[in-house]
Design a binder for these strands. Structure first.
Length: 1131
RNA sequence: GGGCCUGUAGCUCAGGUGGUUAGAGCGCUACACUGAUAAUGUAGAGGUCCGUGGUUCGAGUCCACGCAGGCCCA
């Protein structure tokens, strides 16, 4: 006879599963067999599915959030590959940018100022190049270990000369379209140091200091109205001569108030925000009369004479505050505009705008086409009226000098026209006894001229230059821009065709960003990055944009011929388009003048946004590949990239190719620690991805991340959750496989597709799980086509745990272990096998290692198996195998079984004790048919003999009625509650009437309302005299009478159970036969054995079942109510 | 300060188009089952659906205003 040891094991059996090892083994298998490469090569000639890799920077180590991001990228590429697409995925590295530079500077202990002095640009850039790829190996390692399939051997690298050449060609295209221009932007500027400051420099600790400045609430005289002024407050009075508009909040409330100027005592009408009145008008004066005011009174009376919303003020015109000759402006200057940043927290609720000295000001004025106060230089360029030393230009200075004389202002010295610094006064000045700074002088002038409503010292926080400690000015700085605003409408339109996950990021965060688009500031004053390929003559009259290496080389040759350059900086070495080499190139203008490169680098975001083109060195090479892989079908990055990579991809594609760059995008959220805090190395709550993978294996980590929450929500990463996924999902699936393998090996079952029993010839239960499986495939496919991985993983999990394991296998168990191979048994094996196999494919995108491992365990002996589940073709759902009616029936069966279990529990009758019958009230014929269909299954599951139905005809049904609210609500509206009350009070009589007549009249509030049968819901939840339970509209009553015969059968089942336990204790194998002897002293057992002996023998595989008087050496079995001695021997 | 996201049981999350008593898993408690057994079933405890107003016969769901946390931008 065959024992377990002798059996050839077709399907490997596992006592324990080591998930991390599966990860490692499968990874090695993939490498050895080039599975990734084959998964692409296999699809040669097929339709392409394009994925773009957003390049990470390898100058830091990867974190657990990169596992999230990379998993999300991976799954859809794998899924689409199965679906038959060819999915090329080129890896990439982002190598330029400020973080790299700062890291290098920190390591070298230098600052930006030292570059070119203590260290050459050449050496500095060399250091950056080394640093930026420092952790590439860690990144590659993680990428492999989490199973992110991407081409790491041939990635694009943004510092590569070919990559930069592509960028240059794109920039030249923009330039030729007139979309690249030199302008200015308002940036923090240190007049003391003579340099602009980056926002990073401004965020250094200690740069913001509390300082006391003179603040002025100025009066802007409204045109066309007597003595009426708009009040606006500023802490930088020196910007007032540059005022060219006032901003209000459209929805704020404003008032017009009659009062008197506190300095000149002249009557006036002022306009300010209603919420700011108390700050300017003393509430104590509210009762005073305007007529009673005498010049010099402390309390100044006032009277509100008008109230309106801010939007009513739009377009109002006022007189220029400082009508300096030469600084006049045409309409719409000096008008009221809208500013979304205006609040009533301080000031007057009206903000003074000076185009040159505030970023908000600048933006608002540009959007409203309002000019700013500037003077022209020799070449006709705009210059602000404060120069780069932080001093008013003499035109303004002369005006102020005149005013000082006119108003008889005395100060520590006699001011000349070039003495009016606005922030950085000299030490000598500041220490003088009667020192009056420019702000003070301006305020005196305004006070005297009836143009200041309030002047006071104001303490606030103001940024200072971290090097000179002097206050910073916001100042227009030269910059190169891409004119994205010219394409705003098109970009907005194109965005509407993109499928954003979540949708709100596309319409909200990204959509709003596009709606409020400003020109893209490309300039960066740094060293390590893509140089701007624009050369200019000294006077700026001629410009040239270089678009390729060939063009550059030709231009260099020309320059050498002209004698501007001695030799090419690339002579004898490889071409490198970085600084400093490119700075050494001097070009020749059309007039034969020298042209030097504009010194700026470009924003690194242009680097990454250009990757669709530059990764293929387009347009210089690979035109075919580029065209087949553009635009991307899918991209994914963190939501923080919305205004970064997502935007730059979109902008370049829209402006140069009139196309979207990507059709579908997932913007994923952050990975937080389990308490919802940001992970940081400093706080020690960061999860080490390598350690996590080592401990849990890649599949459970991936699955957890995808199934726990939608990727676009923040994930609170909790290792307990990974454990749970491992236990609940992978554990259950593995158990199911083990169960299959155990019995399949015993029965030497080998799956053969060609000989499989047709589904319609299989058992009802088989047909059911097959149907469920087809539904699952449909569901997963729909979810994945909609880029919803969470839905897909949850559906797979629910099928595996609830349907396949806890229902199908549990109910079908006996078919696997009972008797020899027959058609029914074969069908069970085939059904379970097919389900497992289908699962390996369904889950392979999410859990690529485990799925492949399981696939190979299942198909090891198969003939048509692929080398990997990742090389298979997607198995479409067979719609004809979906049997909705059967699925509904099974749901009923599951509900009924659960109800019977619950009743048994209530009545304290264990499942091993058979019971005679259950009663089910039936109101619909269909329900009855559906239950009858699966009657056998229900009966065996809950161990009862019969299912009986009672219908109306029985006359004993007690019915319940409920209003059908959605239907009634529409019909009745406010009368609902009376009708509902009436229905809830109905007796059987009314229910019978509406069922019989199809309608009934209800009297409510003196009115008669006719109700139709379909407006109420009738159910049956009670059978008089029975113990009943109901759920989901099904009611079950259980007959708990235990007859003599049922009792005997119960004993027989108990005996089987005890003997099975004995077998197990003895260590017998499943197929071992036994002999049983039992003590003849118990009459109940004797009759039970007499009537159910065959059953006991077949269940326990007993050859003999002998009654023995006074069995001496037996085991005493506890049968709950009595004990009996039994002896089991291996036959 | 602005835009956007999130807030439902101790924890993690579901809850088309409003509908009477808000669900699942984990965890906890009790019981049962025992040839998948480090598995499984049943039951129980556990909720101000972030708050306040509003719309409605009826709001976890719609609207407004707040609060808390987060991201991005000033």
């Amino acid at each position: 006879m065959l024992t377990r040891k002798d059996i050839v094991k077709t399907y490997k059996e596992f006592k324990q599963v080591d998930y991390p090892s599966i990860g490692e083994d499968v990874l090695q298998y993939w490498k050895d067999n080039q599975i990734f490469e084959k998964s692409i090569a296999n699809r040669e000639g097929a339709e392409t599915f394009t994925f773009f890799e957003g390049p990470p920077s390898a100058n830091g180590t990867p974190g657990i959030h990169h596992v999230m991001a990379r998993t999300l990228k991976d799954i859809f590429c794998r899924y689409k590959t199965l679906q038959g697409y060819q999915v090329k995925r080129k890896g990439g590295w982002d190598t330029h940018g400020l973080p790299v530079e700062l890291q290098v500077e920190k390591e070298l202990g230098i600052t930006k100022e030292d570059i070119g002095k203590k260290i050459s640009v050449e050496e500095y850039n060399k250091k950056c190049r080394e640093t930026v790829m420092r952790f590439k190996n860690e990144w590659d390692d993680l990428t492999e270990k989490i199973g992110y399939w991407v081409d790491l051997d041939d990635p694009y690298i943004t510092f590569d000369p070919k990559y930069i050449e592509s960028l240059w060609s794109l920039l030249k295209k923009l330039y030729e379209k007139g979309l690249l221009y030199k302008g200015y932007t308002i940036q923090p500027y240190s007049p003391a140091a003579g340099t602009g400051l980056s926002s990073h420099e401004l965020n250094q600790p200690g740069t913001y200091k509390d300082v006391k400045d003179t603040s002025i609430t100025a009066q802007f005289k409204l045109k066309g109205e007597e003595n009426t002024y708009i009040l606006a407050w500023t802490t930088t009075p020196w910007t007032l001569p540059s005022n060219s508009a006032l901003a209000i909040g459209e929805n704020l409330d404003y008032v017009k108030v009659k009062t008197f100027n506190p300095y000149t005592h002249e009557p006036c009408t002022v306009i300010l925000a209603k919420a700011r009145m108390n700050a300017y008008l003393n509430p104590k004066a509210a009762e005073l009369k305007l007529e009673d005011y005498k010049a010099g009174d402390k309390l100044i009376p006032f009277e509100v004479v008008g109230e309106f919303k801010g939007k009513e003020m739009l377009g109002w015109e006022y007189e220029q505050l400082f009508p300096i000759p030469g600084l006049t402006l045409p309409n719409p200057a000096f008008t009221v505009v809208s500013g979304d940043y205006v609040t009533t927290e301080d000031g007057t609720g009206i903000v003074h705008l000076a185009k040159a000295f505030g970023a908000d000001d600048f933006r608002t004025l540009v959007q409203n086409d309002v000019p700013g106060i500037f003077v022209k230089d020799d070449r006709g360029n705009d210059l602000p009226i404060v120069d780069k030393q932080g001093k008013f230009i003499s035109l303004v200075g002369e005006y102020l000098v005149e005013k000082i004389a006119e108003h008889g202002i005395t100060a520590h010295k006699t001011y000349g026209a070039d003495d009016f610094f606005v922030k950085n006064y000299t030490e000598d000045d500041e220490n003088a006894s009667d020192f009056k700074n420019t702000d003070v002088i301006i305020s005196i002038i305004l006070k005297n001229e009836n143009k200041a409503f309030k002047v006071e010292k104001y303490e606030h926080s103001y940024p200072h230059c971290w090097r000179t400690d002097k206050p910073v000015l916001y100042y227009p700085m030269d910059s190169w821009f891409i004119k994205t605003t010219a394409y705003k409408d098109r970009l907005v339109e194109l965005n509407k065709t993109i499928n954003w996950k979540p949708e709100a990021t596309g319409t909200g965060r990204f959509g709003n960003w596009l709606e409020n688009l400003v020109d893209w500031n490309l300039s960066r004053s740094r060293f390590w990055g893509t140089p701007l390929p624009i050369w200019r003559t000294e006077d700026g009259t001629e410009e040239r944009c270089i678009g390729s290496i060939a063009e550059l080389e030709a231009a260099i040759a020309e320059s050498i011929a002209k004698g501007f350059m001695e030799k090419s900086p690339y002579e004898g070495k490889e071409i490198d388009l970085h600084r400093p080499y490119v700075d050494d190139v001097i070009l020749v203008s059309s007039k034969g003048e020298k042209m030097v490169r504009e010194s700026d680098l470009i924003d690194v975001w242009f680097d990454s946004g250009a990757m669709p083109y530059a990764q293929w060195h387009y347009p210089f090479e690979n035109e075919e590949i580029f065209k087949a892989n553009y635009p991307a079908d899918y991209i994914a990055e963190g939501v923080d990239q919305t205004r970064g990579w997502f935007f730059t991809l979109h902008a370049i594609a829209g402006m140069l190719f009139d196309s979207v760059a990507f059709k579908n995008v997932i913007a994923n959220g952050l990975v937080l620690d389990k308490n919802g805090n940001k992970m940081s190395k400093r706080l020690g709550n960061a999860i080490d991805p390598f350690k996590t993978l080592k401990e849990y294996g890649p599949d459970a980590v991936r699955w957890y991340m995808l199934s726990n929450a939608n990727p676009w929500d923040n994930l609170k990463f909790n290792l307990d959750g990974v454990t749970e996924v491992q236990r609940r999902f992978f554990g259950t699936l593995q158990n199911t496989y083990n169960f299959f393998a155990l019995y399949a090996n015993l029965d030497e079952f080998v799956y053969d597709k060609t000989k499989a029993i047709p589904v319609n010839k299989r058992a009802e239960l088989d047909q059911w799980i097959v149907s469920k499986l087809q539904s699952l495939i449909t569901e997963v496919e729909e979810a994945m086509d909609n880029y919803d991985a969470t839905k897909a993983t949850r559906a797979i999990m629910s099928f595996t745990v609830d349907q396949l394991s806890n229902w199908y296998v549990r109910l079908a168990r006996k078919r696997f272990w009972r008797g020899d191979m027959n058609e029914d048994k074969q069908a069970a094996y085939e059904t379970l096998y097919e389900s497992l196999l289908a699962l390996t494919q369904l889950m392979s995108s999410f859990a690529p290692f485990y799925a492949d491992w399981l696939y190979q365990n299942l198909t090891a002996s198969g003939t048509d198996a692929k080398a990997s589940v990742h090389l298979t073709d997607w198995t479409k759902a067979q719609k004809d195998l979906i049997n909705t009616d059967l699925e509904e029936s099974m749901e009923l069966a599951q509900t009924i079984s659960s109800l019977v279990h619950s009743l048994r529990k209530k009545e304290k009758v264990k499942v091993r004790q058979p019971l005679q019958r259950i009663l089910i009230p039936i109101l619909k014929e269909k329900t009855k048919a559906q239950i009858e269909h699966l009657a056998e299954l229900i009966k065996s599951e809950v161990n009862i003999k019969d299912i009986e139905f009672i219908d109306d005809a029985s006359g004993i049904l007690v019915k319940n009625v409920k209003p059908n609210l959605p239907v009634l609500g529409k019909k009745l509206g406010p009368k609902m509650r009376f009708v509902v009350g009436a229905i809830n009070n109905w007796s059987q009589k009314e229910i019978a009437e509406i069922e019989r007549e199809g309608k009934i009249n209800v009297a409510v509030e003196g009115e008669t309302i006719e109700l139709l049968l379909e407006e109420v819901l009738i159910s049956s939840q009670d059978i008089p005299g029975w113990s009943v339970a109901s759920d989901l509209g099904v009611t079950v009553a259980l007959d708990v009478t235990i007859s003599e015969e049922l009792k005997q059968e119960g004993v027989a089942r108990d005996l089987v159970n005890r003997i099975q336990n004995l077998r197990k204790d003895m260590g017998l194998e499943v197929q071992d036969k036994i002999n049983i002897s039992f003590d003849a002293g118990n009459e109940l057992v004797n009759t039970s054995v007499k009537n159910f002996g065959d059953y006991i023998q077949s269940e326990t595989q007993a050859i003999n079942l002998n009654s023995v008087a006074n069995l001496a050496d037996g085991t005493i079995l506890d049968m709950d109510d009595f004990e009996i001695s039994v002896k089991v021997e291996k036959a």
